[in-house]
Nucleic acid binder design. Structure first.
Length: 858
RNA sequence: GGGCGGUUAGCUCAGUGGUAGAGCACCGGCUUUACACGCCGGCUGUCACAGGUUCGAGUCCUGUACCGCCCACCA
């Protein structure tokens, strides 16, 4: 800011500046003043909009959240100071299994979707031993009630951390608006044939009893064992297969080997008989069979793994399913249609020992049976192998045939790759994860879950006269009716009494995958459907901040939905945060028991101190949890208080900035501002902090120390005026450079002498700084930088005091380096902390100042 | 098996072809009138390894090793 404007405000300094209490003071003030309120009276290009990740409120916030949300806030504050109207909403992810589990335990209830809504229901005071069954709407009410309390605690923490969120723009992924967006988008996809229903083998969690999507899988290395099993050949003899899942022998529908495998070529087209159950199954050829694995020939079961599904589909095999949704083997009447056996009595006798056992228990049992029957060759050979798990599950996934909703995504692959290319990634290499995922998509997106707390599918089905549900004839509501819950709401033309009756209707029992709703966060937060004016000003958004492990889920799904609904990207930039690692280099997480309460950290180190540590983490880079860095940040904040106090405590006289040291410092500062702005534009906030901090410490330790005597008036009034004015110009710019990182201390110091909030002040420009000295002063920069270097040398002379002074100066004060210092010589002579030693020998120094400059350096 | 990062001081990490850096930790000195929550100084390096390009490589290229993450078809 120009010198003249710096003169316009009175300076009010506290006796003893301190960080304590700044969070409470300024969060209240910012709220009262609406400092971070989004002003929608701006066109799209004047807006910077952020698709804030909605944290899962049923969990607790941990230091990883503080880390990544600080990154977003730093960017938001920068953009705001650059003059953008920043749209920075906050969402709460309260939709999904984690909340559901928490509510069940907290209130002692269980959701039963067949029950009618009870408006007068209140949960028991203390959860009873027996869970109380409640309707889905009642269950959702309890979820909402509990999450509201969680959200309050989260908001308090976020405010204390200093997030510059506009708290009038909040949403929850289960709230009415989100449900309406989610259901509307679903119905539109349904009408366009992009959402479809299919009865098909699906990955299934037997504990949660729900389908899960490809994106929610993880592989875990599990102990297992190869079992070599004999199948009887029709013409006599046996064929041996290896399997890790012998309990699925009753579900075996074929054997398969590679078409080029000479060992098994003679068997293709023949039948073999399964052990124990004596079922005749064909031997087939398929290229997915690996001759190197096991005995080279595999058993196909319905269904042991995803390869089984592929074989089953491509080889047109029948289904013989034994695993139930709860993971136990279902009762089977051997000899009945589909379960034909050469010896049904023997099959039944064997199977009766397995029925209703879990897969793991059935495996143990069948091994005994196979051993007794002589069909087990040798003993099981232990191995460890990757097994697919639901990421939140405890038991391996099964594959169960069920009716599920899907969104077509495979057909979109090329467009999705193009969108990923179009998106600006920070850091850029994160785009590979997305491309990797899109290229590896193996099926359409299964979006239905057999759970309760979520957005229901807004669909009913007519029931035929014979009482069967007609899934082909869906009944869907008008968009204007949304959101609806088909388990309690009644379709037009029906009455409640016709629910689940012949010639009546049935509601779709499922809910949507949590990503099916959270993939619409830009639409939910931006007011799609409800506030077209707002939506037009914020969408597509500017920034999606998120962590890298959910690129394949949240980021991917959001890109899919925007491509479908808006034919665009949902945002132009994706900023990917790394993880916080504990001292063992492991990701900090609740399960590992190494999580530190964020509020305790903020109280110990101050929000600015914690933010300093967080903002030092570069985009995408995993960062060690390091309280030491928080202490450093806290010290920096304290230093800012004290340096500002020094600059402001005797801020007159003021006047033209004439001294070379002052002019050089400001020119260097203008270059810092130029670089910082470019780095911030490139989302490299950590570098801005690092370089600003470096400049600031030198500003304190070198510049302020050198000009101290001059500003106190030891020389001329003009010299003092030059120093005072330069310090004010520098302080103004430095405070604004620090403001995105250290919002509390910056605001505190700003309030001593500047009007308004620093967070609404204009981001500094190189021009405003050099304007104060009438343009860049390159010669003065040399004085300034040489002064910094020379000061270091001079300090060493002092420290080496025991050596002969002449030798020390010869070593340290390289004459050629000192030439540009002559204009600052009086500052050097006056600098208190070096005066005592060095300038006893001022004669020597003056001699060195007089050395001519070598040609090579001129 | 495929992909992506990383490897620099005891620790955490910057380093954008041109004399190896910062902070922390450690050791020593200093009540110095903004700050002892401060200031000053010191110690600490086969820049993972091997080749190559270049006048010059921590930096660019090739390969190897190790660490981490993402993905993949569980016989």
């Amino acid at each position: 800011q120009a010198l003249s404007t710096l003169d316009q405000h009175p300076i009010t300094l506290p006796e003893k500046p301190a960080l304590e209490g700044l969070e409470a003071k300024w969060t209240a003030r910012w709220e009262a003043d609406g400092t971070y309120r989004f002003d929608r009276n701006h066109a799209r290009h004047e807006v910077y909009s952020i698709d804030t990740p909605p944290p899962t409120v049923s969990g607790s916030l941990h230091v990883g959240h503080v880390f990544s949300y600080t990154h977003t806030d730093v960017i938001a504050r920068f953009q705001r100071m650059r003059g953008k109207a920043v749209f920075y909403p906050m969402g709460w992810d309260d939709n999904g299994l984690p909340t559901e589990r928490r509510v069940q335990n907290y209130y002692g209830v269980r959701c039963d979707p067949s029950l009618p809504y009870d408006p007068s229901f209140t949960p028991p005071e203390t959860p009873g031993k027996q869970a109380v069954s409640v309707s889905r709407p009642n269950f959702i009410e309890l979820c909402t009630k509990l999450t509201v309390e969680d959200e309050r605690a989260f908001e308090h923490l976020w405010r204390h951390l200093g997030l510059s969120v506009d708290w009038s723009h909040t949403y929850a992924t289960i709230d009415t608006r989100a449900q309406r967006v989610s259901q509307t988008a679903f119905l539109r996809l349904l009408h366009r044939g992009i959402a479809y229903q299919l009865e098909a083998p699906t990955l299934w969690d037997v504990d949660f009893r729900t389908a899960v999507a490809q994106a929610e899988l993880e592989d875990r290395e599990q102990p297992g064992a190869y079992h070599r099993i004999r199948f009887a050949r029709a013409e006599g003899g046996v064929v041996e297969i290896d399997t890790t899942r012998p309990e699925l022998i009753p579900a075996c529908v074929a054997l398969v080997a590679h078409p080029d495998d000479e060992r098994y070529k003679p068997l293709f087209g023949t039948e073999v008989t399964t052990p124990l159950f004596t079922v005749a199954v064909p031997v087939k050829a398929h290229t997915l069979a690996d001759p190197e694995k096991g005995s080279g020939i595999a058993m196909i079961c319905t269904f042991g793994d995803l390869t089984d599904v592929t074989w089953w589909r491509e080889l047109s095999l029948p289904v013989r399913a034994v695993v139930q949704p709860n993971g136990a083997l279902r009762p089977v009447a051997w000899g009945s249609p589909g379960w034909e056996s050469r010896d049904a009595a023997r099959a039944q006798a064997a199977y009766d020992q397995l029925v209703n056992l879990s897969a793991a228990k059935a495996r143990t049992r069948i091994v005994d049976l196979l051993r007794e029957s002589g069909d087990l060759v040798g003993e099981p050979r232990p191995i460890t192998h990757p097994v697919k798990f639901y990421e939140k599950g405890d038991r391996p996934l099964e594959i169960i045939t069920s009716r599920q909703w899907f969104f077509k995504t495979i057909e979109l692959r090329d467009e999705l790759l193009a969108r990923g290319h179009e998106l600006a990634w920070h850091p850029d290499y994160m785009r590979h994860r997305y491309e990797n995922w899109v290229n590896g998509l193996s099926g359409d997106w299964c979006v239905s879950r057999q759970r309760f707390f979520g957005v229901p599918f807004p669909v009913w089905y007519p029931i035929k006269g014979d009482g069967t549900v007609d899934y082909e004839k869906r009944i869907v509501p008008e968009e204007a009716r949304l959101p609806i819950d088909p388990s309690t709401d009644v379709p037009d033309g029906y009455t409640q009494s016709q629910r689940n009756q012949p010639n009546g209707f049935a509601g779709d029992p499922d809910i949507m995958d949590t990503w099916a709703t959270s993939s619409l966060t830009p639409q939910i937060a931006g007011g799609w459907l409800t506030d077209a004016d707002l939506f037009g000003r914020v969408f597509p958004m500017d920034l999606r901040p998120q962590s890298h492990e959910i690129i394949r889920t949240w980021l991917f799904a959001t890109v899919v939905r925007a491509a479908r609904e808006h034919k665009s990207l949902p945002w132009t930039n994706a900023a990917i945060s790394g993880w916080v690692l504990d001292p063992d280099r492991k990701k900090m997480s609740k399960s590992k028991g190494n999580v530190i309460t964020p509020m305790a950290l903020l109280e110990e180190h101050g929000s600015d101190g914690v933010r300093y540590w967080a903002a030092s983490g570069r985009p995408g880079t995993d960062t060690a949890f390091e309280p030491g860095q928080m202490k450093v940040g806290r010290r920096l904040a304290i230093k800012i208080l004290n340096a500002a106090k020094f600059a402001l405590m005797q801020a007159s006289p003021r006047g033209a900035i004439t001294e070379p040291l002052d002019r050089g410092m400001l020119t260097a500062l203008s270059r810092l501002v130029r670089n910082s702005t470019a780095e911030f534009e490139a989302y490299d906030y950590a570098r801005v902090l690092e370089q600003t901090e470096r400049f600031f410490w030198s500003f304190c330790d070198d510049y302020l120390e050198l000009v101290k005597a001059r500003r106190y008036g030891d020389f001329t009034a003009e010299g003092a005026a030059s120093a005072n004015s330069a310090m004010l110009v520098a302080l103004s710019a430095l405070l604004r450079l620090f403001a995105p990182f250290l919002p509390f201390v910056s605001e505190e110091v700003w309030s001593w002498w500047r009007p308004g909030s620093v967070h609404r002040a204009a981001w500094p420009t190189p021009e405003e700084i050099v304007d104060a000295i009438g343009g860049e002063d390159e010669a003065a920069v040399q004085v300034f930088t040489q002064a910094q270097a020379a000061l270091g040398e001079v300090r060493r002379i002092k420290a080496i005091g025991k050596r002969p002074v002449k030798a020390a100066i010869d070593r340290a004060v390289l004459p050629k380096q000192f030439l540009p210092l002559e204009p600052a010589a009086h500052d050097f002579r006056a600098a208190a902390h070096i005066r005592d030693l060095v300038f006893e020998h001022v004669e020597e120094l003056q001699l060195t100042f007089a050395e001519p400059v070598p040609e090579s350096r001129a």
